[in-house]
Design a binder for these strands. Structure first.
Lengths: 195, 195, 195, 195
DNA sequence: GATGAATGAGCGTTCATTCAT
DNA sequence: AATGAATGAACGCTCATTCAT
């Protein structure tokens, strides 16, 4: 009630998570909010703008989540693991949201404001910082931390993607897969040292 | 011109990567091909069938590619690495296929025939076989090879996904990222032994 | 112009009799009304709802007509005859309504609300009441008044149907046919007594 | 097999009876017959022509049926009753067929060949003949036999129509209704004498 | 700040029909 | 006598968006 704009975003997010992107229409959002479809245009230039805002909010949420995970651990290895877990957890808890955040077609993202991209990048920087810290502390050996961060991200993203798209064999337990992936990723970064 | 059916598939595949699945319509395909929308129905029962064919052909191609990679290497470690490289290469070279094959939400492919799913699984089995062979030969230590195969797959899939969706930071060289990811993945499997 | 909703109903009703139900489409209605097809959906949930409304309004009109006829006569025989005449008159004057009301196949009106059926039945009850009254007064002898009411209805419906569908031989005067049918029907009910 | 044209008519009639007019398409007929849709056009100018032929055949069948009923009875009253029963029976046994024969929209019938109308009229003539015979024999009194025949027809048609369109109250037994209607109709003609 | 009415474009699909072979 | 390929028109319906109020 307080703020129509927030209401719209909240409901849109909820619709996205529960019904999926394909069924996210201005009318449906309006119906859920309890206002007219026209009113949405008073707060968002068009559907693209609304979705972009939604994505922004999503990255904001992911960021908060990762930040919390990072702050809970001082030692870099523990921090890295916590970050990986937090990332996967976020994706699994918000599958449709995650899909839009990371798989929305590039063309649809064309007009996505640049500053928003920066926000998205902040997540990576948390990973990178942990890697750099770990390397400084002698726990890891990552000569190109930004690449290593990307590799980690890719692994986590792959796990979430497959799970969200329900592509994982039914005989594989999702939690076990996540556990193994997290182990694999963290050990991978540590492995450099061993050698 | 020669074969309308192939033309339709080609154009549809192209449209898919340039415009995205949400904007893939029978009419658009027809316009791109230069025939009437009705004509498509002479070759495909409906839109679902067309997309499923696309997916099938994609998996066929990926399978061929992986099989070739597997057959070129006898030693399991080399084979595993070759498989990883082949997988990523296929995804990067055929982003159009990759999108339908792995990112199309199951909900949208409701009636995808079961036998086709089996074909998709065959790819994973190649990975798994290499892991099992390597474990038998003492080169790897993977107590749950099917989970390990999934972890590897997820990592490769993550890399391809991010690259295809153009989500990777522009300052990161794509080839370097792939190289690091492949290393990370293969070393990850080998690492088990060290421990 | 005044009221788009009424306009739509009017035009739809007209189209129905001139073109037939099979050719009644939202687009045709829109074209006839002079609005976009989309606009119809602002006033009716879908085509079914539109047709149902048409039927409802039709039954409302028929009911009014029959009620008036019934109230104008105290003696049952006169009332029965008046009802028969009113029924036929309504059908001949509103062929457009009549078609949807009675000739639309139930399969095509799948979701016709039950309460509307009840309204349709009210007409029959007027007939039945007259028959029961006449029997009580000794003017008729109808052991199963609800069946007799149906028989009367069927006769009247047959006359209207044939006339509306233009199936009656051109050499037969429509008024004479109606006259004979009414006579036949009313006498038929009375006949029971004579025997 | 013998004759494609007859095959088409047979299958079309069957489709009409089992699936309904709305679902009667050239393609479906072709599929049922086992030939190409194009082939139908070698035997019928277009769908209208095919349907008209179908109607013709229908009237032929009804005629045969009525003729048999007429020939089985010498006394006019019995003949009239048999005719009424035969008519209703035909309609109830071929509901969709009946619908097309008698309720196809006038516009759709526009190009229905005149000579075919004559065939349709022959049925009425059987009724009329029985009435004339009965009047000559002193059993009936029908000053305008062609009108009386129409009245009878209308009654029978009304019964069939209501039954076929499933408009009869579920609490009314269909057979009882038919019985009462036949009685009513035949007695109606006889009643003239009494007066 | 908010709305109801309205619309053009588009969707997947089916249809009767034509034409070259 | 028969066909496969092809098509334009139409269907019911949903969508994002605009505009006058």
């Amino acid at each position: 009630m307080a703020d129509l704009r927030s209401d719209i975003l909240d409901r849109a997010r909820h619709l996205l998570v529960t019904e999926g992107y394909a069924d996210l229409s201005m009318r449906r959002i309006a119906r859920a909010v309890g206002c007219s479809a026209t009113s949405i245009y008073l707060h968002f230039e068009n559907k693209d703008a609304l979705v972009h805002t939604l994505i922004d909010v999503g990255f904001e949420g992911l960021n908060t989540r990762l930040q919390e995970a990072a702050e809970a651990h001082v030692d870099p290895a523990g921090r890295l693991e916590a970050l990986a877990r937090a990332y996967v957890a976020f994706g699994r808890e918000n599958p449709e949201y995650y899909e839009v955040m990371f798989q929305l077609h590039p063309q649809r993202m064309a007009r996505y404001p640049v500053e928003a991209y920066r926000r998205a990048r902040r997540n990576l920087e948390l990973l990178e910082a942990a890697i750099v810290d770990g390397t400084a502390a002698g726990a890891f050996s990552a000569p190109a931390p930004e690449v290593t961060a990307h590799v980690m991200w890719a692994s986590m993203h792959g796990v979430v993607s497959l799970l969200v798209a329900q592509r994982v064999d039914v005989r594989i337990d999702a939690d076990a897969l996540v556990e193994a992936a997290v182990r694999h990723v963290v050990d991978g970064v540590r492995a450099g040292v061993a050698v």
